[in-house]
């Protein structure tokens, strides 16, 4: 028997909203420690890795590990039927899981809706992501990163990210001209969510697709801060951390001529 009840159902709505553009079908791997998902986009350029800890649900029950093969478009359609204040419960019979039950209860509990989503068999290749000691780790307000991606998209569909000890610089060059945004570390004690920090092993400069980065910023509502990890000739890691877990996006770099 699998049951996971999340009081802040809106979180699940936002999480699914932040992956729906990237992947269409994915396996939710459920175990007694929690729920995780790893999926690449069709072009194998980007990957999303989601992890929700069992402690974040109440109750959480997963008698034995199993996978829920889900078409994310269909799941998103059903999630649209949940109110933002609803408590969401996921249930499945973990022996013969051929469907996932979703229960939406409103706060005063006089409205309960129940949906069943047909599950699919998805054989997905799994990537092993090595623990990396990154050359640069940048923390910044997630809204700031979203704005930089959106602004520089008007100039080009590629962005070069340069990180040095006291600056992170985003540069775009295109037909119309060029644009760049430079951020300096700040540490506003009273507003930690506004702070910008740079942890530098060595300077790094990499080029990425802004189309994918903009797509990743769908995770902005999940966290005030976003973490960017860069290492030379390694995929970029973009992480939005939540109390209940994290959503991580990996993006392979572009190599110039």
């Amino acid at each position: 028997m699998f049951e996971a009840r999340l009081t802040q159902g809106a979180l699940l709505k936002r999480l699914l909203d932040s992956v729906k553009e990237l992947v269409t079908d994915a396996n939710f791997d459920c175990s007694e420690t929690g729920i995780s998902l790893q999926a690449m986009d069709n072009s194998h350029v980007a990957l999303v890795s989601l992890s929700l800890r069992a402690e974040g649900f109440n109750p959480y029950r997963c008698d034995r590990g199993f996978s829920l093969g889900v078409n994310l478009n269909s799941l998103n359609k059903i999630m649209k039927c949940a109110g933002n204040e609803d408590v969401i419960t996921l249930k499945a019979d973990d022996s013969s899981a051929d469907s996932l039950c979703l229960l939406f209860e409103n706060s005063s509990n006089e409205r309960v809706s129940e949906y069943e989503l047909k599950l699919m068999d998805i054989d997905q290749e799994h990537l092993s992501i090595p623990e990396t000691d990154y050359d640069a780790t940048v923390m910044m307000p997630s809204a700031e990163f979203q704005r930089i991606c959106r602004d520089l998209m008007v100039v080009s569909e590629s962005v070069t990210i340069d990180v040095s000890k006291d600056e992170i610089k985003f540069t775009a060059e295109g037909e119309l001209g060029t644009g760049n945004v430079k951020l300096k570390p700040t540490s506003t004690i009273d507003k930690p969510e506004e702070s910008i920090t740079i942890e530098l092993g060595q300077t790094v400069s990499l080029q990425f697709s802004l189309k994918y980065l903009s797509n990743f910023t769908r995770g902005t509502p999940l966290s005030d801060q976003v973490m960017l990890c860069l290492s030379d000739n390694m995929p970029l890691l973009v992480e939005y951390k939540m109390d209940i877990g994290y959503i991580r996006y990996y993006l392979a770099p572009k190599v110039g001529d």
Binding site: V45, L47, S128, Q207, S209, M234, P253, D257
Partner: peptide, 14 residues
């Protein structure tokens, strides 16, 4: 010209 790398170049499929 920029070439977009693939993740499978960096991460091993298991």
């Amino acid at each position: 010209l920029e070439i977009q790398e693939l993740l499978t170049t960096f991460f091993v499929q298991v």
